[in-house]
Simulated scan of single mutants.
Amino acid sequence: MTVEQAQEVLTVEAEGITAVRDALGEEFVRAVDLIMDCPSRLVISGIGKSGLVGQKISATLNSTGTPSFFLHPVEAMHGDLGMVSATDIVLAISYSGETSELNLLLESLKNRSVQIIAMTGNDKSTLARYAAVTLNVAVPREACPLGLAPTTSTTATLALGDALAVSLLRRKRFREEDFRRNHPGGSLGERLKVAVQEVMLTGDKVPQIRKEATLEQAVAELNKKNIGAVLVVEDSNKLCGILTDGDLRRHLLEEKWLEKGSGAAESRKHISDVMTRHPVTISGELMAADALSLMQSKDITVLAVVGEENSVQGLLHLHDLLGKGEFRFLI
């Protein structure tokens, strides 16, 4: 009996989603157009079960390229209304369309000339009258046998929110790599599918120095950038070598620098006398997984990223793939 009851609930909820699907029309297109033209954010508001659904819709929008945040109607009327700007759009959710706390907020929003999209099961409601666009989420019946607990209606509202997010995703031409960029805490396998050029260090963050520089100047750059290596370049920013912390330690031991007391003389050496020539490099167009594999095979933690004619594009550190920055572990 229990299984049959569960199947009945799912059947009723499926019927609700079908009803909302069949009711879709130009209002949905207008809602998408309105959000696409919004220069700032989509603010979602609702209370009770509708508020919980709104929070999930907001999270889905954020991860698929539409900036959004959830605003609780009561908190809004006690100061949080300041989070909403005149250029924002508000998506207000209430199945009855007569939620007093939400409608009180909507009055304040209208006074600020904020445009409102309603998601309601009653297109004749107060909420619908406030709205520039109304999305109808009316369902034939609730799955709750008492007809009291929001069940089918919240499922249908959530599904319509997904439809809105996916429609916006497609209009924005949101790509798989954009999604991964918004999910840096995902599984390592997924995170390593991005291109090296998306995670490498660039510009002033890259420790590099001219090959005519002294060892003292190279050490200063090592300390300043704190990456554990400095790239050595010549004309046209062409890579000609690399100096790592390990290279520096080995050189000092070989030269018996400390024993001879010749630190001053050593520091004036040119970096080209100490650097590793022809360092391991990678193209920025390859995948982060390729970079990790190369680092493991060569037993190194730093990779120079180069383009045409060996010109330096950036620098990739093992930490950028596994333990720091955009690819941090969430523990």
Rank of each mutant, 00 (worst) to 15 (best):
F327K: 14
Y130H: 14
P140Y: 10
T281R: 12
T64A: 03
S153T: 06
K193S: 07
T151N: 00
G79H: 09
G263M: 15
D178A: 00
T157P: 01
I47L: 15
M200I: 06
S113E: 15
T18W: 10
W257S: 14
K49E: 11
T281H: 11
Q296G: 03
S100T: 14
V199R: 12
H72N: 14
K124D: 11
T134V: 15
G261E: 06
V306Y: 00
T155A: 12
D204C: 07
L239G: 07
G186C: 07
V196Y: 06
V302L: 12
G261V: 10
E234Y: 12
E101F: 05
A265R: 14
P207E: 01
L322V: 08
P39G: 06
G189S: 14
T120S: 11
L222F: 10
V133W: 02
L201M: 11
S267T: 07
R41I: 02
T276R: 05
L201T: 09
P145Y: 10
E142S: 08
A14L: 12
V74K: 05
I271Q: 01
E27C: 04
T154V: 11
V90R: 02
R21Y: 14
A131I: 03
E107I: 03
E216I: 03
P39A: 04
F174H: 12
V20F: 02
N136I: 06
G97H: 00
N226L: 02
P140E: 14
L10G: 09
K211A: 13
P145S: 11
P67C: 05
T152E: 03
L160M: 13
G185I: 10
L253W: 09
T152Y: 00
E266G: 08
I44M: 04
S311N: 07
A76L: 05
E255W: 06
M83K: 15
E259N: 10
L81T: 06
R141N: 10
E255V: 02
G48Q: 11
V232T: 07
A304N: 09
K193M: 15
L253F: 13
G323T: 12
V90M: 13
R210M: 09
V305S: 01
K172E: 00
K205V: 11
T120D: 00
W257N: 10
A213D: 04
M295F: 10
H319L: 05
S100Y: 13
E216R: 13
K256G: 09
H319K: 07
L286E: 12
N182Y: 15
V9R: 03
R112Q: 15
Y95S: 09
T157F: 00
L243A: 10
L91D: 05
D80G: 02
L160F: 06
E326L: 13
L316W: 10
D178F: 06
L248R: 11
N111H: 14
E75W: 11
E266L: 15
E308M: 02
P184R: 12
S113G: 00
Q197W: 11
L81E: 03
I44Y: 06
R181P: 01
A6T: 11
L188F: 06
R170W: 07
G82T: 01
M295H: 08
G246I: 09
R191D: 05
L169N: 09
L160V: 08
E190K: 15
G48A: 10
P39E: 06
T126L: 07
S125R: 02
A288F: 05
G186E: 03
R250V: 08
L42E: 06
L160E: 01
G228Q: 09
E216C: 07
P73L: 08
I300K: 14
L292V: 02
L316I: 08
E254D: 12
N103Q: 05
A23R: 15
K225G: 02
